[in-house]
Nucleic acid binder design. Sequence first.
DNA 1: GTGAATAGTTTAGTGTCGTGAAATACCTGG
DNA 2: CCAGGTATTTCACGACACTAAACTATTCAC
Lengths: 142, 142
Amino acid sequence: MSDLGWELSTASVLFHEAVARRLGLTAVEHKALGMIVRGGPLPAGALAPQLSVGASAVTGIVDRLVRAGYVERRPDPDDRRRVLIAATADRPDLSAIFADLTREMGTVVARYDAEQLATIADYLEHTIAVLRAQTAKLSDPA
Amino acid sequence: MSDLGWELSTASVLFHEAVARRLGLTAVEHKALGMIVRGGPLPAGALAPQLSVGASAVTGIVDRLVRAGYVERRPDPDDRRRVLIAATADRPDLSAIFADLTREMGTVVARYDAEQLATIADYLEHTIAVLRAQTAKLSDPA
DNA sequence: GTGAATAGTTTAGTGTCGTGAAATACCTGG
DNA sequence: CCAGGTATTTCACGACACTAAACTATTCAC
């Protein structure tokens, strides 16, 4: 059982690596892209702390993402100093990857009834909470 | 539901990164260490393809792991050209991390009865299979 | 309105990591 | 025993990506 958890964790990491490699992105760039896709348009400065890099490094990271066509810089209407980084609308390779994954996961989920799904969701939630807590503990100079 | 899966995936990746950072290892070094800890003593050459680096790079990677005290080089009695990389017996920080995680995951697992655990295990197995298949597809020049 | 603070970029410099070729040691087939 | 192949290391080189500090533009506080 704990073996399965570890295998899943490893499989997740390998999958992330494979995606990054496929997209031609480094780990940090991939992470940044993930934040942008999820979090909507973000100011450049918001990325620096989460990526654990200096503000000046963000410029280069965004440059590469822009050059690769994954994001675009938009001026922030509210604050003309800021630059909002937004995911570009059309990213065929990226959506292909996730469409594939979503479809496959759909067939997995279809194996279970509502009650079983509730159990699985409960397990996932608690596992996520544990992982986040452990991550926080590791990051802190405890 | 698919949100949960994605969150778990992200949490796993962040956890792995936190572990690597805590141990003072780069992503490749951490990956190599994982292979060695799991797969028992491995010849240096076996690491190169899985890490996607050349054979000469492995020397440096192992050097850093040795210097940090996580692994040691052993001569292979069967083939004196080879060098087996083995995990060192005493790695207090490393076992502390995993002891903590294992304990917490134990309390999560304790929430369910045998039937529920079977469902969860089934879900994990199938999810792992999907992730591995997708990873393979991405890595292949399909 | 002026001065300090903020957002982002630029530049120069540094460090690190990986590649590729050559070197060493060893195994193996004939 | 010798030739060719394999496992690992060494070395010189090149490529990136990050940091730190200086620079520009803009906002905000008083």
